[in-house]
């Protein structure tokens, strides 16, 4: 709501609030209020971002002077045998995460939207794992996955299936970890889809029904197109998040068995804090971030193209 003042009143406001002294003091107070944020951001964000670039060209020594080494760190990355492993692992992690977790929240949100009672119950239940700290969830889940006494193998035994090694199995380690990640995050995603679904005017469905569209056709032609922009955004967010995953594989398997669950961030962590090779780790993080940014901008470009073509 806009309050309008009588003409002479605004005139008074303008004159007394537009003097040079007033304006100067306004800018100064403005920056006084900004100072805490600027100090904090400078210290823990802007300065470290600049330092990341700087360190990637250095051999960093925590005690003495750091030495400039030019592109040596980047050349070492090119020779790093872990490079191929990390690329493959990220690709597999991302694929598993899309496979296990991408469609689930969409389906669940559509079903929950259709509930006539108990919407709130499902919403809160599915959301609960999202508040659980990963390190605590890992304590519980690694016992569920336990090859000897875990409940999962006991359950398989009921169906006559042989127990699996889960986290210690070369083939199953990634999907097992991704399953826990999906458990921990799909509730939040469901809530996002659900709130988007509630924006669909019910008249659309009514009109479609009158025109003889079957329920599946209504989902295909009304619900899914409405969700499409959110789905496309969450697709890229999910991939960016899973490529940067650290805590789950680090706590579950430390990257094992072998290097099956080694992720780029874990590699950076190992280099920086295991071997104290900060410059090399900084170069890796610069490379990783550039790859992620190139990926997301290509994805957005592609998305715009598709959207533009659909409109024509």
């Amino acid at each position: 709501m806009k309050i309008t003042y009588p003409l002479h009143a605004t005139h008074f406001v303008d004159r007394s609030f537009s003097g040079l002294a007033y304006r100067l003091s306004r800018h100064i107070t403005g920056y006084l209020f900004l100072i805490p944020a600027i100090i904090v951001f400078g210290l823990v964000a802007w300065y470290p971002i600049v330092r990341a670039f700087q360190m990637s060209f250095q051999e960093v020594s925590l005690l003495g002077e750091s030495k400039n080494v030019g592109f040596e760190n980047y050349e070492l990355i090119e020779k790093d045998p872990a490079r191929k492993v990390l690329f493959e692992n990220s690709l597999e992690f991302a694929s598993w995460s899309i496979l296990l977790g991408y469609a689930v929240p969409v389906v669940v949100a559509i079903l929950v939207r259709e509930m006539r009672f108990g919407k709130g119950f499902f919403r809160i239940v599915y959301f609960l794992p999202s508040v659980v700290p990963v390190s605590i969830a890992v304590i519980v889940w690694r016992f569920i996955y336990d090859p000897d006494a875990g409940v999962l193998n006991e359950l398989l035994k009921l169906f006559g299936i042989k127990g699996q090694l889960w986290l210690y199995d070369v083939k199953l380690a990634k999907p097992s970890i991704v399953a826990v990640m999906t458990w921990g995050t799909f509730g939040t995603t469901t809530l996002i889809y659900l709130s988007s679904l509630l924006d669909i005017p019910t008249e659309l469905y009514e009109a479609a029904e009158l025109d003889g569209a079957s329920p599946l056709m209504r989902i295909r032609h009304i619900t899914l197109p409405h969700l499409a922009p959110v789905m496309s955004l969450l697709f890229v967010i999910q991939i960016l998040a899973v490529v940067q995953v650290f805590t789950e594989p680090y706590l579950f398997t430390k990257g094992g068995p072998g290097r099956e669950t080694l992720t780029p961030v874990m590699h950076i962590y190992n280099r920086a804090f295991g071997r104290a090779d900060m410059g090399y780790a900084a170069a890796w993080s610069v490379v990783l971030v550039i790859i992620l940014m190139v990926f997301s901008s290509f994805y957005q470009l592609f998305n715009h193209r598709v959207a533009a073509r659909q409109q024509n």
Partner: peptide, 14 residues
């Protein structure tokens, strides 16, 4: 910028 980009220098800064 993902925070992993400057995690290492943040640690050094702190």
């Amino acid at each position: 910028i993902p925070s992993i980009a400057y995690l290492v220098p943040l640690f050094v800064t702190l």
